[in-house]
Simulated scan of single mutants.
Amino acid sequence: MAYIDLLSSVHKATQRDYLARVNDPEFPKAKAAQIAKQWAYDYWDGDRRINYGGYKYMPGRWAPVANQMIEYYGLKAGDSVLDIGCGKGFQMVELMKALPGLKVRGLDISTYALEHAHPDVKDLIDLGSADNLPYADKEFDLVFSINTFHNLHNQELEKALRGIERVGKRKYICVESYRNEVEKANLLYWQVTCEQFNTPEDWDWWFKMSGYTGDHSFIYFD
Protein backbone atom coordinates (compact mmCIF):
# COMPACT_ATOMS: atom_id res chain seq x y z
CA MET A 1 0.00 0.00 0.00
CA ALA A 2 1.34 3.41 -1.00
CA TYR A 3 0.27 7.03 -0.70
CA ILE A 4 -0.10 8.37 -4.25
CA ASP A 5 -1.26 11.98 -4.63
CA LEU A 6 -3.12 12.24 -7.93
CA LEU A 7 -5.88 14.69 -6.99
CA SER A 8 -4.64 17.62 -4.93
CA SER A 9 -3.87 19.85 -7.92
CA VAL A 10 -7.42 19.49 -9.24
CA HIS A 11 -8.94 19.84 -5.78
CA LYS A 12 -7.02 23.03 -4.98
CA ALA A 13 -8.10 24.66 -8.25
CA THR A 14 -11.54 25.34 -6.71
CA GLN A 15 -12.06 28.31 -4.40
CA ARG A 16 -14.42 27.65 -1.45
CA ASP A 17 -16.28 29.97 0.92
CA TYR A 18 -16.93 27.59 3.81
CA LEU A 19 -18.93 29.96 6.00
CA ALA A 20 -21.18 31.10 3.17
CA ARG A 21 -22.04 27.52 2.38
CA VAL A 22 -22.94 26.47 5.88
CA ASN A 23 -24.87 29.69 6.67
CA ASP A 24 -26.84 30.11 3.44
CA PRO A 25 -30.38 31.31 4.33
CA GLU A 26 -32.15 29.46 1.47
CA PHE A 27 -30.13 26.26 1.54
CA PRO A 28 -28.76 25.83 5.08
CA LYS A 29 -26.39 22.93 5.45
CA ALA A 30 -28.92 20.32 6.63
CA LYS A 31 -31.33 21.15 3.80
CA ALA A 32 -28.58 21.13 1.17
CA ALA A 33 -27.33 17.75 2.40
CA GLN A 34 -30.81 16.26 2.40
CA ILE A 35 -31.32 17.31 -1.22
CA ALA A 36 -27.82 16.32 -2.34
CA LYS A 37 -28.15 12.77 -1.02
CA GLN A 38 -30.86 12.07 -3.54
CA TRP A 39 -28.02 11.99 -6.13
CA ALA A 40 -30.34 13.55 -8.71
CA TYR A 41 -30.48 16.82 -10.68
CA ASP A 42 -29.86 19.08 -7.70
CA TYR A 43 -26.69 17.22 -6.73
CA TRP A 44 -25.13 17.44 -10.19
CA ASP A 45 -26.64 20.34 -12.07
CA GLY A 46 -28.72 22.33 -9.60
CA ASP A 47 -27.79 25.30 -7.43
CA ARG A 48 -24.11 25.60 -6.48
CA ARG A 49 -25.19 26.03 -2.87
CA ILE A 50 -26.35 22.41 -2.91
CA ASN A 51 -23.34 20.84 -4.64
CA TYR A 52 -21.64 21.07 -8.05
CA GLY A 53 -23.86 23.73 -9.59
CA GLY A 54 -23.49 22.22 -13.06
CA TYR A 55 -21.23 19.21 -13.53
CA LYS A 56 -20.23 19.53 -17.18
CA TYR A 57 -17.45 17.98 -19.20
CA MET A 58 -14.47 20.30 -19.57
CA PRO A 59 -11.97 18.74 -21.99
CA GLY A 60 -8.59 18.26 -20.36
CA ARG A 61 -9.59 19.07 -16.77
CA TRP A 62 -9.11 15.47 -15.66
CA ALA A 63 -6.37 14.67 -18.16
CA PRO A 64 -3.48 15.17 -15.67
CA VAL A 65 -5.05 12.61 -13.35
CA ALA A 66 -5.54 10.17 -16.22
CA ASN A 67 -1.96 10.57 -17.43
CA GLN A 68 -0.50 10.09 -13.95
CA MET A 69 -2.66 7.03 -13.41
CA ILE A 70 -1.56 5.48 -16.70
CA GLU A 71 2.10 6.16 -16.04
CA TYR A 72 2.17 5.09 -12.40
CA TYR A 73 0.29 1.84 -12.96
CA GLY A 74 1.94 1.08 -16.28
CA LEU A 75 -1.38 0.71 -18.07
CA LYS A 76 -1.36 -0.35 -21.71
CA ALA A 77 -3.86 -0.89 -24.50
CA GLY A 78 -6.03 -3.89 -23.75
CA ASP A 79 -5.91 -3.44 -19.97
CA SER A 80 -9.22 -3.12 -18.13
CA VAL A 81 -10.05 -0.35 -15.67
CA LEU A 82 -13.05 0.20 -13.39
CA ASP A 83 -14.08 3.59 -11.99
CA ILE A 84 -16.26 3.18 -8.86
CA GLY A 85 -18.42 6.25 -8.31
CA CYS A 86 -17.74 7.46 -11.84
CA GLY A 87 -20.58 9.98 -11.99
CA LYS A 88 -21.02 11.14 -15.57
CA GLY A 89 -17.89 9.30 -16.67
CA PHE A 90 -15.57 12.23 -17.33
CA GLN A 91 -12.49 10.52 -15.89
CA MET A 92 -13.26 7.47 -18.02
CA VAL A 93 -13.30 9.68 -21.13
CA GLU A 94 -9.91 11.19 -20.31
CA LEU A 95 -8.41 7.75 -19.74
CA MET A 96 -9.68 6.56 -23.11
CA LYS A 97 -8.30 9.64 -24.83
CA ALA A 98 -4.93 9.34 -23.12
CA LEU A 99 -4.60 5.63 -23.86
CA PRO A 100 -6.53 4.37 -26.92
CA GLY A 101 -7.42 0.72 -26.55
CA LEU A 102 -7.85 0.88 -22.79
CA LYS A 103 -11.00 -0.95 -21.68
CA VAL A 104 -12.95 1.22 -19.24
CA ARG A 105 -15.99 0.46 -17.11
CA GLY A 106 -17.83 2.63 -14.62
CA LEU A 107 -20.22 2.16 -11.72
CA ASP A 108 -22.39 4.77 -10.03
CA ILE A 109 -25.41 4.89 -7.73
CA SER A 110 -27.00 7.87 -9.50
CA THR A 111 -29.57 7.17 -12.19
CA TYR A 112 -29.43 10.85 -13.14
CA ALA A 113 -25.66 10.70 -13.67
CA LEU A 114 -25.99 7.66 -15.92
CA GLU A 115 -28.74 9.28 -17.97
CA HIS A 116 -26.59 12.38 -18.44
CA ALA A 117 -23.23 10.66 -18.81
CA HIS A 118 -20.73 11.60 -21.50
CA PRO A 119 -21.92 9.97 -24.75
CA ASP A 120 -18.57 8.25 -25.31
CA VAL A 121 -18.97 6.16 -22.16
CA LYS A 122 -22.70 6.17 -21.41
CA ASP A 123 -23.07 2.51 -22.41
CA LEU A 124 -20.06 1.53 -20.29
CA ILE A 125 -21.49 2.62 -16.94
CA ASP A 126 -23.40 0.27 -14.63
CA LEU A 127 -25.97 1.35 -12.06
CA GLY A 128 -24.92 0.05 -8.67
CA SER A 129 -23.39 0.65 -5.26
CA ALA A 130 -19.75 0.51 -4.18
CA ASP A 131 -20.60 -1.97 -1.43
CA ASN A 132 -22.02 -4.54 -3.85
CA LEU A 133 -19.73 -4.81 -6.88
CA PRO A 134 -21.23 -7.02 -9.63
CA TYR A 135 -17.88 -8.12 -11.05
CA ALA A 136 -15.70 -11.23 -10.98
CA ASP A 137 -12.63 -11.71 -8.82
CA LYS A 138 -9.60 -9.83 -10.23
CA GLU A 139 -11.62 -8.86 -13.30
CA PHE A 140 -9.86 -5.52 -13.71
CA ASP A 141 -6.19 -4.61 -14.06
CA LEU A 142 -6.92 -1.42 -12.09
CA VAL A 143 -9.89 -0.38 -9.99
CA PHE A 144 -10.03 3.18 -8.69
CA SER A 145 -12.48 5.36 -6.81
CA ILE A 146 -12.27 9.13 -6.46
CA ASN A 147 -14.28 10.92 -3.76
CA THR A 148 -16.79 8.13 -3.19
CA PHE A 149 -15.87 5.87 -0.27
CA HIS A 150 -16.21 8.64 2.32
CA ASN A 151 -19.92 8.79 1.41
CA LEU A 152 -20.51 5.30 2.80
CA HIS A 153 -21.75 4.35 6.25
CA ASN A 154 -19.54 2.04 8.32
CA GLN A 155 -21.26 -1.20 7.35
CA GLU A 156 -21.11 -0.18 3.68
CA LEU A 157 -17.51 1.00 3.83
CA GLU A 158 -16.11 -2.33 4.98
CA LYS A 159 -17.97 -4.17 2.21
CA ALA A 160 -16.78 -1.63 -0.37
CA LEU A 161 -13.13 -1.92 0.68
CA ARG A 162 -13.31 -5.71 0.59
CA GLY A 163 -15.05 -5.50 -2.77
CA ILE A 164 -12.46 -3.29 -4.45
CA GLU A 165 -9.75 -5.57 -3.10
CA ARG A 166 -11.55 -8.57 -4.61
CA VAL A 167 -12.23 -7.30 -8.14
CA GLY A 168 -8.99 -5.39 -8.80
CA LYS A 169 -5.46 -6.58 -9.42
CA ARG A 170 -4.32 -3.06 -8.48
CA LYS A 171 -6.34 -0.53 -6.55
CA TYR A 172 -6.41 3.20 -5.81
CA ILE A 173 -8.88 5.28 -3.80
CA CYS A 174 -9.03 8.97 -2.89
CA VAL A 175 -11.11 10.07 0.11
CA GLU A 176 -11.68 13.16 2.22
CA SER A 177 -9.82 13.45 5.53
CA TYR A 178 -8.54 16.01 8.04
CA ARG A 179 -5.33 16.53 10.03
CA ASN A 180 -6.36 19.28 12.43
CA GLU A 181 -9.38 21.13 13.78
CA VAL A 182 -9.35 23.74 11.01
CA GLU A 183 -9.51 21.10 8.28
CA LYS A 184 -12.12 19.20 10.27
CA ALA A 185 -14.36 22.27 10.55
CA ASN A 186 -13.93 23.12 6.86
CA LEU A 187 -14.80 19.57 5.88
CA LEU A 188 -17.92 19.66 8.04
CA TYR A 189 -18.93 23.03 6.56
CA TRP A 190 -18.34 22.11 2.93
CA GLN A 191 -19.42 18.49 2.54
CA VAL A 192 -23.02 17.52 1.79
CA THR A 193 -22.76 13.74 1.37
CA CYS A 194 -19.84 12.65 3.57
CA GLU A 195 -20.50 9.95 6.21
CA GLN A 196 -16.87 9.24 7.12
CA PHE A 197 -15.05 11.92 9.13
CA ASN A 198 -11.72 10.21 9.59
CA THR A 199 -8.14 11.28 10.18
CA PRO A 200 -5.43 9.63 8.05
CA GLU A 201 -4.77 7.29 10.99
CA ASP A 202 -8.45 6.36 11.11
CA TRP A 203 -8.44 5.59 7.40
CA ASP A 204 -5.35 3.46 7.84
CA TRP A 205 -7.25 1.46 10.46
CA TRP A 206 -10.12 0.93 8.02
CA PHE A 207 -7.73 -0.23 5.28
CA LYS A 208 -6.00 -2.76 7.52
CA MET A 209 -9.20 -3.99 9.13
CA SER A 210 -10.82 -4.56 5.73
CA GLY A 211 -7.79 -6.17 4.12
CA TYR A 212 -7.37 -3.37 1.58
CA THR A 213 -3.87 -3.53 0.07
CA GLY A 214 -4.20 -0.91 -2.67
CA ASP A 215 -2.95 2.67 -2.87
CA HIS A 216 -4.69 5.75 -1.55
CA SER A 217 -4.60 9.53 -1.17
CA PHE A 218 -6.47 12.13 0.85
CA ILE A 219 -8.20 15.41 0.10
CA TYR A 220 -7.94 18.09 2.76
CA PHE A 221 -10.00 21.25 3.12
CA ASP A 222 -7.37 23.67 4.39
Rank of each mutant, 00 (worst) to 15 (best):
M1S: 15
D5Q: 07
D5V: 03
S8H: 09
Q15K: 07
Y18M: 01
L19Q: 09
L19K: 02
A20D: 05
A20E: 12
R21V: 10
R21P: 00
F27Q: 04
F27S: 06
A30M: 02
K31F: 02
A32W: 00
I35E: 01
A36F: 10
K37P: 01
W39K: 04
W39Y: 15
Y41G: 03
D42L: 08
W44G: 02
G46Q: 03
G46L: 04
R49D: 12
R49M: 08
N51S: 07
K56H: 12
M58F: 07
P59R: 03
R61S: 06
R61Y: 11
W62G: 00
G74R: 06
L75R: 03
L75D: 09
K76P: 00
S80W: 10
V81I: 14
L82H: 13
D83H: 12
I84V: 15
I84A: 05
G85A: 11
G85E: 11
K88F: 14
Q91G: 08
V93G: 05
L95D: 11
L95P: 12
M96A: 08
P100C: 10
L102S: 01
K103A: 12
R105Q: 11
G106D: 07
I109Q: 05
S110G: 13
Y112M: 12
Y112W: 15
H116S: 07
A117R: 09
D120E: 15
K122M: 09
K122A: 14
D126V: 09
D126F: 14
D126P: 00
D126Q: 08
S129R: 02
S129E: 10
A130K: 00
A130S: 06
A130V: 01
L133Q: 04
P134M: 06
D137W: 04
D137F: 11
D141S: 11
D141C: 09
V143W: 02
F144W: 08
F144V: 03
F144Q: 00
S145K: 02
N147A: 14
F149T: 03
N154L: 03
L161H: 06
G163I: 09
I164A: 05
R166H: 15
R166C: 07
R166Y: 14
V167M: 05
G168Q: 08
I173W: 07
V175P: 00
E176L: 11
Y178L: 02
R179W: 00
N180E: 08
E183C: 07
A185H: 12
N186V: 10
N186D: 12
L187D: 06
L187T: 14
Q191S: 15
C194H: 13
Q196H: 10
Q196M: 14
F197V: 07
N198L: 13
D202H: 13
W203N: 04
W205K: 03
F207T: 01
K208Q: 11
K208R: 13
M209S: 14
S210A: 15
S210E: 09
S210P: 08
S210H: 09
G211C: 10
G211P: 10
Y212L: 05
D215C: 09
D215F: 08
F218R: 02
F218G: 04
Y220W: 05
Y220M: 04
